[in-house]
Amino acid sequence: MERGREGIDPMRGYYDDRIVALSSRLVVPFIQLFALYVVFHGHYSPGGGFQGGAMLAASFLLIRLSVGSDGAQLQFRKGWGTPGSSIGTLIYLVTGLSTLLLGGYFLDYSQLPLGMGESETRSMGILIVEIGVAVAVACTLTAIYDDLVGEEGRRGSPHDA
């Protein structure tokens, strides 16, 4: 495929197109805001952890696509992907394990010590879990994109044509 200007790989290096960069920078906060809304409002309307996480990932990918992966490091670092997905899933798993340790069944949210009524506790449990899912999905999808694009150490190397 076509190279960018001056032989810079547009997917990796800084890709300097003001209009694209500016407009995507303008849009991204709104996408992220909506993504958070989707995560936190999943109890009442369609949406939830996965959809919100995927939208967050989409906002990261948009910046990566518009200014190149190197430029997008300021927003979401490559190194955060794998730990982030581990941590997000850990939130989920640890919630389940803590209910197990508190004497209930695995993922039995009513055991969580939140000091609320049973059904409210379940509601909170759902929210905690959805946040975990959102973090995991956003980080993992970004990490997959980064892995597909490749390392910056390879930039300009002969075998990524």
Binding site: Y44, S119, S123, G125, I126
Partner: peptide, 18 residues
Amino acid sequence: DAHTPNMVTVILADYRAY
């Protein structure tokens, strides 16, 4: 059970959370 009107969310994250 979970004070959540969206049933899909409840099933997703509570009944079938696993």
